[in-house]
Write a protein that binds this DNA or RNA. Structure first.
Lengths: 333, 333
DNA sequence: CTGTTAGCGCATTCAC
DNA sequence: GTGAATGCGCTAACAG
């Protein structure tokens, strides 16, 4: 049968250059020293044929794929998109490719996807895994090298995450600095780790400022939760509201506007996360930005360290940056 | 040297089951019929060893990787995220993996990334490629199988995209149906294809409705452009404003509110894209949704068709769905 | 039905 | 310095 043009192989190049295929391999990888003229002939033949080594074949023999896998709970979540972007670009800068796996919030899929993608890559990054601590602890050793993002310290893998406690504390201090002494926290999901971090920050702030009062009401994590809390917020007499996140803050802002309550004149409102539209609310929302892109880049750094034989830092925590905008102002006199 | 546990190979399984490695291969792939008892022995040995065939080795011999590549101009863009998500999930449902490549809006990188990722995958999806028509035309044949998203019909590859012309026409007709006879279009970038599609829709509408007047003013594509156009819009006397996209509409909404102009009582405002926060503006924004997830799923369908030997439809165009919300109402009397 | 053989395309020993 | 083997792990012809 006539050989379809297809992709030229190393043998084709060897043939055309009149050398053995091992010589071609040598010049392509710049390994051993090859006769100058011969090397040139090989390079010429290669470029004429448009030859590029088959990555699959190389992977098989070298034992590495130049690819890592990233498992995320939901590709549609802006937080993960930012992380993925930072990770992807950092990895690309080092010549690595990224294979993605979306668990679609199906906890049971996480270990399956991680294990499966791990076999076709050199390592895997678990982004905010939803599985239990026990499951995670059992899984991690089988995935090495592995990096975990946004999940409290794990024994058998480097972790990179944001320091939500310090970040939230910064928001509280911002309000305190503007004269607020009575705040109210619109809590997120009761048992979530992120809610716990915010409450810890609140406790820290109370301990640091004896004259600070921070009420807390159960709320939620979305726009409607925020708007539903408006009456409770205004009834509390607090001069500043700390929303669990930006969505909640936006809902609150909207409901407050409906009631004719002015922000920040009557009450200050702060969010958390700096979602893309936080800057477009009326007034623009003061919030704290978790550097998703940086998180991703750090995760890659931790992976790269392991890939190159080194040891990655056990844990790195980035502190989100406070973004003061129009929704917070001095406490009303 | 002691053999590190590592991953068990097909030989290990064969050894343990006391059969030849081809028999193991057979039962693992359910190919030829194998003696029942023997097959059972093999399965037992495989599960005891936790054996799974090395995907790399399979890829090399089978000539397929069960992976496709997706090249996007910017992973941070919500539009592409939705597409990527739809694509990824659809592909996963068929047992395929997705390798991503972010060109970071570097046009020159597109062909490089496409070509490079193509070699490690079975096909590539080009998402809204920025390169010139000529470059694209030259590149596509080298990538087969390939699918193009959101870019006008190409000769050598199936294309999936949204029908922006029909979609925008739907928005215009919605306003016309509510009694509006004088509209104003806040145009996007002069030379962009998406702007041309909207203008074509406007022309269609004018042709269909003799009593319809549609003004047009140059504007832009972001929030600030929209707010900057507020005065021109109110001065025009139009009863309805058609923004190039949601960001522009949101900017307009915000500036209109500052001027005490009520929406939709005094003027109706419509956006385009249905970005995540369009439902949270005050009032909620009427817009048209480009089904990003569907786009991705369709792209996968087109790829799958090629992968399985079939021929994909040359072009599929999805029509965005009109979402009527609070920012549009009847024309003021 | 099962075992033996020959590659997939390449990097890397080993002799020359 | 260079070419001839060996094998990465697996599937698919090929014999038996």
């Amino acid at each position: 049968m006539a050989k379809t043009p297809g992709k030229p192989t190393i043998t084709d190049v060897a043939h055309r250059a009149g050398v053995s295929l091992s010589t071609v391999s040598r010049v392509m990888n710049g390994n051993a020293t090859v006769d100058a003229e011969m090397a040139e002939r090989v390079r010429a033949a290669a470029s004429e044929l448009g030859y590029t080594a088959n990555p699959l074949a190389r992977s098989l023999v070298l034992g590495r794929t130049q690819t890592i896998a990233v498992v995320v709970p939901d590709l549609a979540n802006p937080t993960f998109q930012e992380i993925l972007r930072g990770l992807s670009r950092a990895a690309a800068a080092d010549g690595y490719h990224v294979l993605i796996a979306d668990s679609a919030e199906q906890v049971a899929e996480e270990p399956v996807l991680a294990t499966e993608t791990r076999r076709r890559t050199d390592g895997v990054v678990l982004c905010a895994p939803r599985m239990t601590d026990d499951d995670l602890a059992a899984l991690l050793p089988t995935l090495t090298p592995v990096v975990v993002i946004n999940r409290p310290a794990q024994a058998s893998a480097p972790v990179v995450g944001a320091d939500y406690r310090t970040a939230f504390r910064t928001v509280v201090d911002h309000l305190y600095g503007r004269g607020h002494r009575h705040l109210i926290y619109l809590a997120g999901l009761e048992r979530s780790a992120s809610n716990a971090a915010r409450r810890a920050a609140l406790a820290d702030a109370r301990a640091a400022h004896a004259d600070l009062v921070v009420d807390e009401i159960p709320c939620g994590v979305d726009f409607d939760s925020g708007s539903g809390a408006a009456d409770a917020v205004s009834a509390s007499g607090a001069t500043g509201a700390l929303a669990f996140n930006d969505l909640v803050a936006m809902g609150l802002l909207s409901a407050l506007a409906d009631r004719g309550i002015r922000v920040p004149q009557d009450i200050s409102v702060a969010g958390f996360d700096d979602i893309p539209f936080a800057q477009y609310t009326t007034p623009p929302l003061t919030t704290s930005a978790v550097p998703g892109g940086d998180l991703g880049a750090r995760a890659w750094a931790a992976m790269k360290a392991q890939l190159t034989g080194g040891e990655a830092d056990a844990a790195v925590a980035l502190t989100p940056r406070l973004l003061v905008r129009g929704s917070t102002g001095p406490a009303p006199a």
